[in-house]
Amino acid sequence: MLEVRNLTKIYVSGTVQVKALSEATFNVATGEMVCITGKSGSGKSTLLRQLGLLDRPTYGEIILDNRPVVKLSDGERATLRLQFLGYVFQEYALIGELTAHENVYLPGMMLGQKDVDFKKRAQELLQIVGLGDRVRHYPKQLSGGEQQRVAIARALINNPKILFADEPCANLDSTSSKLVMETLVNLNKEMKITIIFVSHDPDDKQYAESIIVFSDGKIVERHKVRGDTV
């Protein structure tokens, strides 16, 4: 499903170079739920942004379904994000002028799906994430946890092969966090979606099948939660 080879990201600021990601190499299988964890500034979010095609690595390769994607044009990357990937940001990242329903179905509209199809699908997804009664609410009328679940529903509208979630519970209380993480687990189990999420909360490891631990931009550990160390 996903192969990462020597992925490296170096930020340059004047004469200073910071290696945020160093030679990361790993594979993720279809349907796997992976937790990327590590201390703040360890490079886990940087990795996720490269995988989500929101940023370009300095070098290295990402292979999605046997297709190298690093050197694709901006337009091709946008198409890939739209058709195959879902991305959940740390800070909800909803469009304030759109209702929950509209936020969810907007990518479906861009995909060229039929009006009835994407609106119905958005309704179903909001139902799945437990917000069936909040479809007409605007983001500011929703709690943080509800907004994050709308963002998850939006990330699922295109039936993504991989869902990336960058610290999805960072701004949530424990109850909302639990709800959001359980939503992700259910999606992984029921819809067989590959999920890669970033978290610095040790408690979130329980939701993953395998864990990648980062430190100073390098993978220092990879193991299965249920099974042997990889």
């Binding site: 946008a78 469009i95 907007l106 295109n158």
Partner: peptide
């Protein structure tokens, strides 16, 4: 600006 970034991140073209 942020909203435009989000739109692009979720796959809306330029």
């Amino acid at each position: 600006k942020r909203q435009i970034g989000i739109l692009r991140a979720i796959g809306i073209k330029r």
